[in-house]
Design a binder for these strands. Structure first.
Length: 221
DNA sequence: ATCCCGACAG
DNA sequence: CTGTCAGGAT
């Protein structure tokens, strides 16, 4: 009887340890992976990459960006001037090229009118949702919008930050709990991405080898 | 076969 | 809320 009681106490204390602060998650990710220095590319290329990477692996996006770069198509006006079928062919490796070609042109039209758009300006563009808008705002325009993607939701729920699947919830969650710091926002999102790819994978997460498994609710199930 | 830093239309 | 868009890596 005493042992059962002890075990329940022990279990409770473990649960409390799982409930860590997002700051602590950030600190541990940063300690393990180091700075990601994730603002590759020049200016508008970041915005292009943000669109091309919608539901698409970055390795495929890199091929498309290379094609664009080799043809001098990283400039909004040049993109608008070029034949759309040519544009589609260049970005083909990134997938969804029919719609993404149009999405890019929509973004270019906005950018020519206003190269420092607001969040609402971006969301008004057909093809730019919240994640893409926030990526552009954070990594290109240096506006502190916390980027929430499928990886962020997956890791947050697994590690034990109880919450729904809705990205809007997690955006508020992180923006309330984290210090409003551009560099931290940038690094944190980048760290969540690399961690989701290397350990916290969708089907086969590598919990045994994961450096966070003692802090993670998912690895204890 | 499954997944990839989603967004939009129906 | 569900179907659709799509090539590329594993």
């Amino acid at each position: 009887m005493l042992i059962i009681y002890w075990n329940s106490i022990n279990h409770l204390s473990k649960c409390e340890m799982i409930d860590m602060h997002p700051q602590e998650l950030f600190r541990k990710l940063f300690a393990f992976y180091g700075p990601q220095n994730w603002w590759p590319g020049e200016d508008f290329e970041i915005a292009i990459g943000a669109v091309l990477t919608q539901n698409t692996s970055w390795s495929n996006v890199e091929k498309a960006l290379q094609n664009l770069k080799q043809n001098g198509l990283l400039d909004p006006q040049v993109i608008l001037n070029c034949d759309i079928e040519f544009l589609k062919r260049l970005i083909k490796p990134a997938g969804f090229y029919n719609q993404k070609a149009n999405y890019l042109r929509n973004l270019c039209s906005l950018w020519i009118k206003n190269s420092s758009p607001s969040r609402d300006d971006l969301l008004a563009v057909k093809g730019i949702g919240e994640e893409t808008a926030d990526s552009i705002l954070l990594y290109l325009l240096n506006i502190p919008e916390f980027v929430i993607d499928a990886y962020t939701v997956r890791i947050s729920k697994r590690i034990g930050f109880n919450g729904p699947d809705e990205k809007s919830y997690w955006k508020r969650f992180y923006q309330v709990k984290m210090k409003k710091d551009i560099q931290v926002y940038k690094e944190f999102h980048a760290l969540l991405v690399i961690h989701a790819k290397e350990y916290c994978k969708k089907r086969t997460p590598l919990c045994k080898e994961c450096f966070l498994n003692e802090d993670c609710a998912y690895s204890k199930k």
